[in-house]
């Protein structure tokens, strides 16, 4: 069951994109992306709307086919390899997934076993163990037999994460897993995801909208603008006010929270600046 632990210690690069260009219907969105994903870490992609962060994730997940360049998983192109083989190594949680009406949590999570199953082999002991373990990790065991559509947004998102966990892959790609959730729920989810990387050695690539969450939880932060990677590295080194101004066109101060040591971004709108100047006066 704990297949990922062996690989977790391995620091070799498993997922990388090189000279990647992609887009929809001829309109190019990504241009010449080179990216390596550090193994066993949590990588977070951030950028303004339309910066291409979701497109990059989708291309790495083989939802989109690149117009040029390659995405290599263990040295093989994910777009050329058999999709089922890729699915045994790399899981994907797309943005805003919708569960079919009435599907129970257990049934949803069991869908994650797809790449390991056959027509007549749909509920082996291995499947059952993986599903139970995934539900336990995501903290949804108590809802196992409830319909997914009866749960709250945060619980539902945990179900989807459990589904991807049941896939038992070392790599997980998640597209905006926290969007439309309450802040508390967002934090809980990020804790869960960070735990997956740090305690269980999984490699995560997450597209995030929330800058402060990204700065607080990312091991490796990737900032994108206009389909290019502006900078990538530890938040410590790249999460600065100048970068935020450049990437998001956002006037902000980056401060360090005294207690947690997390970097926090404080936006400075005209309103806030006026207040600040009043206080100074």
């Amino acid at each position: 069951m704990a297949a990922w632990n062996e690989n977790g210690a391995d620091t070799g690069i498993r997922l990388a994109a090189s000279a990647l260009c992609a887009g929809y219907d001829g309109a190019s969105i990504l241009s010449d992306i080179d990216l390596t994903i550090p193994t066993g870490k949590m990588s977070v992609l951030v950028g303004a709307n339309g910066s291409g962060k979701s497109t990059l994730l989708k291309t790495m997940a083989r939802i989109l086919t690149p117009s040029s360049g390659t995405v290599l998983l263990d040295g093989k192109s994910v777009h050329a390899a058999k999709t089922r083989d890729v699915a045994r190594k790399m899981g994907l949680l797309p943005q805003g997934p919708i569960a079919p009406e009435g599907l129970t949590v257990r049934e949803l999570v069991a869908q994650g076993r797809f790449p390991h199953q056959g027509l007549m082999r749909q509920w082996t002991r291995e499947d059952e163990d993986a599903v139970n373990a995934a539900m336990a990790t995501a903290g949804i065991t108590e809802f196992a037999d409830r319909p997914v559509d009866s749960l709250s947004g945060g619980q539902r998102q945990r179900c989807w994460i459990a589904m991807v966990l049941a896939q038992e892959t070392d790599l997980l790609l998640l597209d905006e897993p926290t969007t439309f959730l309450d802040l508390k729920v967002q934090v809980d989810l990020m804790e869960l995801l960070a735990d997956l990387a740090h305690a269980r050695g999984r490699t995560l690539v997450i597209v995030l909208h929330e800058l402060s969450l990204a700065a607080a939880y990312a091991d490796h932060l990737v900032m994108m603008k206009d389909g290019r990677i502006v900078c990538a590295g530890a938040p410590e080194t790249i999460f600065t006010a100048e970068r935020l101004k450049h990437v998001f066109d956002l006037e902000a101060r980056v401060v360090r929270d005294a207690e947690t040591g997390h970097l926090v971004c404080v936006p400075l709108g005209a309103h806030a600046r006026r207040k600040a100047s009043v206080r100074v006066a």
Partner: peptide, 21 residues
């Protein structure tokens, strides 16, 4: 095809992620 139909119910992106052709 029912096995693939099952994951297709959750949308094409999810189905691709799970390795359905």
């Amino acid at each position: 095809l029912t096995r693939i139909m099952s994951v297709l119910r959750m949308g094409e992106d999810t189905a691709v992620g799970l390795g359905a052709p």
